[in-house]
Nucleic acid binder design. Sequence first.
DNA 1: GCCAACGTTGGC
DNA 2: GCCAACGTTGGC
Length: 137
Amino acid sequence: MSKRYWLMKSEPDAYSWDDLVEEGEGTWDGVRNHRAANNLRAMQVGDEAFFYHSNIGKEIVGIATISEAGLTDPSDPEGKWAAVKVKPVRKLANPVTLKQIKADPKLADIELVKLSRLSVAVITPEEWKYIISMAEG
DNA sequence: GCCAACGTTGGC
DNA sequence: GCCAACGTTGGC
């Protein structure tokens, strides 16, 4: 299967990009939303994900890669929820803010905006390329 | 099975 | 701090 792209939200107060870089690898667990969990289950090792800071910053700050997929959430005693592990790839030269994303007609259908409460969202290859060009172009 | 009430998340 | 969006719960 070809590589897919994702967006993972985190409140930097709870777990920031810098925390991920410091640890080297982070487990993405605690997701208790079925749609977000389905996204987690669809992830494959090697997929890439934007790391988005919600609440504080409200911007995409970096790129992470899925290092382990199809895990069971260790924080779920019933073992029903999914988790993955991620590693930082690189920080974006210029973070892309939610404001920029909302203001751009090319990103009008992005799941991040349409389903704003989803903690794990899908990014299409077109959206991925476009956001990268905003950040590093 | 429907729907109102409530809780949570996240933007503003 | 407020409110909108969405999910979940519980009464019927």
